[in-house]
Write a protein that binds this DNA or RNA. Structure first.
Length: 203
DNA sequence: TGAATGATTTACT
DNA sequence: GTAAATCATTCAA
C-alpha cells in the first residue's frame, strides 16, 4: 500500500523517523527498482540554517519545498550528484526529509548496471544520497513528482522498533554552525547500507 | 559578469 | 588521511 498523503503532514521529525523501514519504488522506462529506507535526515524550514529554504529563501531550485506534501524534491549538487527529498508540511511550509540510504529489495541488476558495479555486496548499491539516486534512476526529471500517484512512490511497511533506531547529527552541514548539528538524522543501526563513518569507528 | 561553493563519491597516498 | 571531478545556484560588484 502506498503511504497516504496525510503521512507527510506529521511533524517533519516524525516523518523522518517513521520513513525508516518504508519502501521506495521507482517504475522507470528501464524497469522497476525498490529499496527499504534505512537512513533519513530532516530539513526544517526558514529557521534551519542547513536547509535550502533557510531564511525563507525561495527559488526555482527549491520551489517544490513550498508546494504540497508528499512530492519529491530532487536537486543536483557538486556538479555530478542528485539528492532526493520527501516534501512534508502543507503548502508554503518549506520542510523536507532527505533520503540517504536504502537496502535494495528489487531490480538489483538494473541498479548494478546504473552504478557500474558488476560485483560487490548489494548493500553498497544505495549507500549515500548520491549513490541512491544513481542506482534508482532518479534525476531532476522527477523533481516535483507526486509520491502518492506517480512513477516514484513510497510503500507502507512495518515500523522499525525504537531499539533498532539511532539518532545522530546530520552529515555534511557543519558549515551551517552548531544549531544545524542537532540530532536530526535517523538510521537503522544494524543496516550495513547506512552511510558515514563505520560503526567500529563510531563506537 | 564573475567567483565561490556545496544536504557527494571515489580513488589515491 | 587528502584530493579531484564538475556545474547549478548564489552572492558580490
Amino acid at each position: 500500500m502506498v503511504l497516504p498523503r496525510s503521512f507527510y503532514l506529521q511533524p517533519t521529525l516524525v516523518v523522518a523517523r517513521r520513513l525508516l523501514g518504508k519502501v521506495l519504488v521507482h517504475d522507470g522506462p528501464q524497469g522497476r527498482v525498490a529499496g527499504r529506507i534505512v537512513e533519513t535526515e530532516a530539513y526544517r524550514g526558514p529557521a534551519d540554517r542547513a536547509a535550502h529554504s533557510r531564511g525563507g529563501h525561495r527559488s526555482s531550485r527549491n520551489e517544490v519545498m513550498y508546494g504540497p506534501p508528499g512530492h519529491a524534491y530532487v536537486y543536483f549538487i557538486y556538479g555530478m550528484h542528485h539528492c532526493v527529498n520527501v516534501v512534508t508540511q502543507p503548502r508554503d511550509v518549506p520542510e523536507a526529509v532527505l533520503l540517504r540510504a536504502l537496502e535494495p529489495v528489487a531490480g538489483t541488476a538494473l541498479m548494478r548496471a546504473r552504478r557500474g558495479l558488476d560485483d560487490g555486496p548489494e548493500w553498497r548499491l544505495c549507500r549515500g544520497p548520491g549513490a541512491l539516486c544513481r542506482a534508482c534512476g532518479i534525476d531532476r526529471a522527477l523533481n516535483g513528482a507526486d509520491l502518492v500517484r506517480g512513477p516514484l512512490r513510497i510503500l507502507d511497511a512495518p515500523e522499525i522498533p525504537p531499539s533498532a533506531v539511532r539518532r545522530t547529527p546530520r552529515i555534511g552541514v557543519a558549515y551551517a554552525g552548531p544549531d544545524a548539528m542537532r540530532a536530526w538524522r535517523f538510521v537503522v543501526a544494524a543496516s550495513p547500507a547506512v552511510s558515514g563513518p563505520s560503526r567500529s569507528r563510531r563506537e
